[in-house]
Every structure is written in C-alpha cells, then in structure tokens.
Design a binder for these strands. Structure first.
Lengths: 144, 144
DNA sequence: AAAATAAAAGACTTTTTTATCTTTTATATA
DNA sequence: TATATAAAAGATAAAAAAGTCTTTTATTTT
C-alpha cells in the first residue's frame, strides 16, 4: 500500500505529535526506538519531513524533533503525499499512465470509490488525533 | 497498491481471457504487445500464473496461452494473491506485524473498511467480465 | 571561546524488484 | 523421424528501494 519509508514516516509523525503535546522534543534515536525502526533510516526520513515542514527541529543540546501547534493539524494524507507522492490518490490501479475517466482501464470504475475513500480517510486523520489513544496505550506503534 | 508484476499479471489475464473466449491461443509476445509490457518479463509472469493454474498453456506449433472455461470465473483477487500474496487484504497499513484487532495500530480501524472493500471488489471481479468492454473498445489495456 | 550535543547533508552499501538472456523441454506437422 | 515452434526453467543484469556510515553545520552550555 505505502512504501516502507512512508509507513515509518507516518509512525514517526504520530509518535512525535504525542511527545510534542507538552512541548517536549525527541531525538531520532528515541523515535527510532519507540516505533521500532532503524535509526539512521529514520534520521533520513526526518530530514525529508523537515524539508516539507511536516516536523520542526532544533540542533544542539536539548535539541530534537517536535511538532508545533499548526502542524498538529496536518493530516496523514500530507505525510503520504510528501513521501510517496499522490499516485495512491490518483494513479491507475493497473499502472496505466493513460487511464482516465475518458480512456479507462477495465477496473477504473471499480477502483474509483476505494481510492476516494482512502483519500477521505487520510485527509480526515490528523497526526495528533491518536495522542490520547497512545497515552492510554490503547494503540501501539512499536513492538510493545 | 499492487506490485508492477501484479499489475502486468492482471492485465495479461484480462487480455488472455478475451482472446480465449472463442478458443484462441496467444503467444507471450502478442500478449506483451497488447498490454504494452516487456516481453521477457511477461513470459516470466505467465510461468508463475501457469504454476498457480491461473492460465493454461500448450507448447509447440499453434501453442500458446489460454484460459479455460473454469478459469474464466477466477477473480482478480486470485491473481493478486498468487503474485503479491494476501498482505493487501490482511496486512497492517503501517507495516506493523503485531497489529491486530486486539493489539491495533492507530489507523487499524480506519483502514479496515477500505481493505474489506478492496477485497470485495477484487473477489467479485472475474477475469472474463471485461471481455465485452474490451471487444467494444470501451476500456483499454495498452497504450491505444 | 571551547566543548559537547544534536540535526543536516552527502556518499555509500545492501536488498529487493524489475527486467533480460540462454538453454532445455514439449508438441505439432511435414 | 526431422524440423520448426512455443513455453519452461534457470542464470544473469539493471534499477529502485531500503538501510548505513561519515562529515558538516548549528546551537547550547560551561
């Protein structure tokens, strides 16, 4: 569905959001550990997310990654678009470049509603909406 | 969504089904051309599909690939399972191996209905149901 | 200002996926 | 039975994705 990179990115965003709620910052090692992902790979992904302004960061002692007020309201769709692009929202299920409303592939119509629902779901899910569930350990991001 | 291999496989199946309707057989070169895919790669994929009994084939002169009566009713879900496995139907959207009903990832519930719909869609689409639309050139598999 | 801390950037390696090429096996037909 | 045809199998190559390592830059604290 999503690339591995994108899966890590979503998990990292959700974790950072939770940690940032009360103004905290988190290092990439801690993030990697929390979501059970390879440290240097997460470091790279956080750089990408930073360039897209999906995470904030500060260098030096007591530095780290965090998510500010506005960014809390960014959606999973934003994260997916930043990492995997929008092919999952608009691309053809059979990988045909020409496929469109006017020149459809066989499964074009069958796929349309699923793609739309996926988009709606991702667009309505903010990165911070899981904070509570995480706090209460009702959902999980790592191995636990 | 699907691997490239799987996309080619679905397109190939749909094409072969149409060609087989009236008892015809098709060589892998013709198939590759029709669905606009690399010849030797399609040859490999057809071998896989053959092993899973999703296509029939005969060697020698006037040989080729075809799809028999029963196989006409096989679904796109069968093809996807044969090539990509069932992670798209049952896997976690965030790639978490532990994720389940009891130990859910944050987006577990959000994803469930989409996955189910995808499965239903693929399970109810037979490889032969597009024959007519293809004949009437209302849908397309290649560049056209 | 110096030392320590932490992210950013860039180069590099490994693994997986995608694609290709060559040889073998099976079948039909002349 | 010999020849031609076409798929099966196996080995190899190229490209993309995933993952790692090293150096640089920025910031804080002493």
């Amino acid at each position: 569905m999503f690339s591995k990179t994108c899966e890590y990115a979503i998990r990292a965003m959700i974790y950072i959001a939770q940690q940032s709620k009360s103004g905290g910052k988190t290092g990439f090692k801690q993030i990697a550990h929390a979501i059970d992902a390879p440290e240097p790979f997460i470091a790279k992904i956080l750089q990408q997310l930073g360039r897209e302004n999906l995470v904030q960061s500060s260098k030096g002692p007591h530095g780290g990654f965090y998510i500010n007020e506005q960014t809390m309201n960014r959606t999973l769709a934003d994260v997916v678009k930043a990492i995997d692009g929008d092919k999952i929202f608009s691309g053809c299920g059979l990988g045909l470049t020409f496929c469109s409303e006017k020149n459809p592939c066989p499964i074009h119509n069958e796929f349309k509603s699923i793609r739309n629902q996926m988009q709606q779901m991702l667009q309505s899910a903010t990165v911070s909406q899981f904070n509570d569930l995480l706090d209460r350990r009702l959902v999980h991001l790592g191995r636990n």
